[in-house]
Amino acid sequence: MRFGVVVFPASNCDMDTYHVVDQVLGHPVSYIWHREQNLDGFDCVILPGGFAYGDYLRAGAIARFAPIMESLPAFAGRGGLVLGICNGFQVLLEAGLLPGAMRRNDSLQFRCRDVLLRVENVRTPFTNRYRTGEVIRMPIAHGEGNYYADPETLAELEREGRIVFRYCSAAGEILPAANPNGALGNIAGICNRRGNVLGLMPHPERCSESILGNTDGLGIWQSILHWWGAAREQEAVRNV
C-alpha cells in the first residue's frame, strides 16, 4: 500500500507521519510537495499537522487553494483514502471535503496534552481495528479545534454515523469536562459520507510506538492496512 504525506509550507508533523508509515508500518511512503498535482499511484494521502501557510487568515484557508488540493477531490472520488490530522483536518474543512468549520478553542488557549476519545464508528477504513465505544488516549496540540457545524449538518453527521471520535471521560461518557476546546457534541473526528475521508484533531502519529509510551494510535494505521488488504482481496475475487 502506497502512502503520500503532503508537505505545505509550515507543515510540521510531516516527518513524524512519514516515520510511522515507513518505520512502524514498513510501507512505501513519499512526501508530496504542495505544488504537485499528480496523485497517481497513491492509495492513501495524509494531510499532516502543522500551520500550513502560517494559518494566516484562518487555519487551512490558504492551504486549501494549493495545487495539490485541486487533485484531492478526484482522488477521494476514485475511492482513495484521505486522512487529515489536526491542521490537515482544518484544511479538509476549508476545502469542503468535510462539512463544518473550526473556531478558536473556547478557552482561547493552545491545548497540548493527552485526551481520551470514544471510538463511535468502527465501520470506516480508519477505525475497523477498534471496538465500538472503545476509549483510547491520544495527544492533541491545537488552538483551533472548536468544531462547529449548523444544526442540520450536525444532525446529518449524527444520523449517518459520521462522527467517528468524540472527547470523553475515562468511563467513556461524553461530558463537557472532557471537552478540551468547546467542539459541538465533543466532536474530535468526522468522515465523509463514503467513509474514505477522515479528519481528526488528535495526533495518531504521536502515539503509535511503545517507546513513546502510548500505542493507542496504531489502530488507525492497522485499520487502513486491514481495509486495503480486504479491498484488494475483493478485487482479486472479482477478477477471477
Binding site: 487568515l57 484562518r58 484557508a61 490558504i62 487553494f65 476549508e94 463544518g100 468549520a101 473556531r103 462547529y148 457545524a149 449548523d150
Partner: peptide, 8 residues
C-alpha cells in the same frame, strides 16, 4: 471564496 468562511 477565501476572505470569509461562510460556515461561521
Amino acid at each position: 471564496r477565501l476572505l470569509a468562511n461562510p460556515v461561521i
